[in-house]
Each structure stands twice: as structure tokens, then as C-alpha cells.
Design a binder for these strands. Sequence first.
DNA 1: GATACGTGGGA
DNA 2: TTCCCAAGTAT
Length: 335
Amino acid sequence: MAQQSKLTDTIMQWQQSQGRHNLPWQQTITPYKVHVSEIMLQQTQVATVIPYFQRWMALFPDLETLAAASEDEVMTLWQGLGYYTRARNLRKAAQYLNEQHQGQYPDDLKALEAIPGVGRYTAGAIRSFAFNSYGPIVDGNVKRLFARLFGIYGEPNKSSVNKEFWQQAERLTPPDNSKAFAQGVLDLGATVCKRHNPLCTECPVQADCFAFEHDCIEHLPSAKKSKVKPVKDAHFLWHTQDNKLLFKKRPSPGIWGGLWCLPEQQEAPENASLLGQFTHQFSHYSLQASVWQLNNVQQPAGLYQNTRLQPISELQQIGLPTPVRRFIEDIQTLV
DNA sequence: GATACGTGGGA
DNA sequence: TTCCCAAGTAT
């Protein structure tokens, strides 16, 4: 067996004694559980994911069940978790694996990356966690850890900087049995090498750490350029009929794609009264929404494609964007 | 390479 | 309040 770096050994041993071993997707590991959890965890905190993961596994216990599920079933479960393309791709992935790979997960990185929604990180994660084979990973945790450990400056998403992170990951990841290493860098980043107030006194690689030695932990990783968030206006229609509310399915791709939403239009409608307003902060823009109640006899024109009248008492059964659900609930409380 | 894509938590 | 960030990917 090839000589493994001391850093690799240290991180693996730390993981086995101090790392996380009780996360739901670490129990009776299967490629499917690893896949689902890794998709859910993209840009999403562990604590947020856990209840979604539990519900998902109860409803879609395997690839076959998932492949046969409707998009609506999947979106209803995913509502509130965000980045809804992930949910649609997960369902596509199940169909793809059933049709192209006999319902089995491939175990090489290239084939894993060909799965819808699986990129370089997730392919490495599946290979490491599910197969315990060589699977380098670079995520936010790893970037923070490596930036400090090796003194890697520059915006982490800049391609040249990103390339450095991946080179380090490929170099340090052991050729076999890479699970403990992959889990180790994630756990170190998440629980010790935190963005704020890192626990350097508990860090197993403190002696090797550039940032610790140079006392520049708070300056690494380098800050990204912040951008001005644009404000967008939206006009939603509130149309009720027999205690039912009119919804329209959001197109994909696009914001809230695949979820049901109040019908939206560019301009404020004529002959309508303002029922209420809400604002919502997306990561890339602020939404200023107005909700218009149409006059009684007025029918919303040209809205019948992909629409449904949903009983207000049965809103739990469809996937709604979080701020829209919140608005509707607030209105109900007032009534 | 830049941008779109959600939501909630923490400082 | 506002901003950054969290197990990134697709286009």
C-alpha cells in the first residue's frame, strides 16, 4: 500500500474517535441513502435536513419507489427545503438508474457524475461514503479547512482557487478506504474549523495549520465580493371559489419550479383590491409581492393551464413556496 | 466565467 | 436589520 500522508492519517484517526457517527444517513449505509442525503445537504444545514431525510426515506424507501412517484409527491415532500431542482433531479436520477444501470449505483466517479443532479462533489461523496473507495470531495467545509490549513488565499469560488482545493483533496484522499477521510474533513470543518470562533485548541491538525501559525484564521477563507441584491416586484392573484383557492404550477426551470403557487402576473390587475403584501429575501434578490383579490364574478383569464382549485382545508397536500404558504396562513388567521 | 436557484440560522 | 453562510449543480 502506498505511503499515506501523515495529515491523512491524522484526519482519519480523528474522525474515528471524534467525528460524527450518529447522523441518520450513517446508519446502515446504502448508496441510495448517501445519494439522497448528499443532495439534501447541498447548501443546506444538517439540522434542517434531518427531518426531511426521515420523511423521505419513509415515503420513498428505495430507487424503485422513487422512480414510480409523481413529481407532485416528491415536491410536496421537498417543500420548504429550497433549491427545488434538486428534488426533480433526484426523481429523474432514480428513473435514470433504473433504466440505464439496472437499478444499481455505478461505483466509478465518471458514471456517478452522469447521474442527474450529481456533480463532482456528490460523486466523490457517494463513492467515499457508499463504496468506501477513492472519492475526493470539496465542499464549503473542505474549502474553509484547506484555506486555513494550507494558507490558500483568493475567493474560494474562483476557478484557479477552486482548482487548488481539488488538487489538495485528490492528493490527500487515500486511494482506498476513503470514507473516514471524507467524513473527517467534513466533520472537522463543521465542528472544529468553524467559520466563526473555530475550536483550534481541539484541532488535530493545529500544528500543521498555516492560519493558526500566522494568526489569520478570521481572514481565511478569503471573503467573496458581495453584490447588490436587486428588488423584484410580483403580483399574485387570490381567486377563491367554494372555499377553494386557485393555484398554478410554477414552470421549470425557474424559481419555485414544480411547486404550486398563487397565479402570478407582471402587472397589478384592474378591478381588483389589494388583499395583502409580503416581502421575501432570496439569496439573489428581494421579492416585493402584492396579492390581489379579484372581484367576485371576475374569472382570471388565460390561467387554466396547470391550475387547480385546492380546498383551503387541504393545503398540506400540495407543495407550496414557503412565503406563499405563510401568507395564506396569515390571511386565514385574520379571517 | 457568471448567473440562477431557497430557506433558515447566526453574528 | 442586514449580511454571510450552509455536505453544489446546471446552464
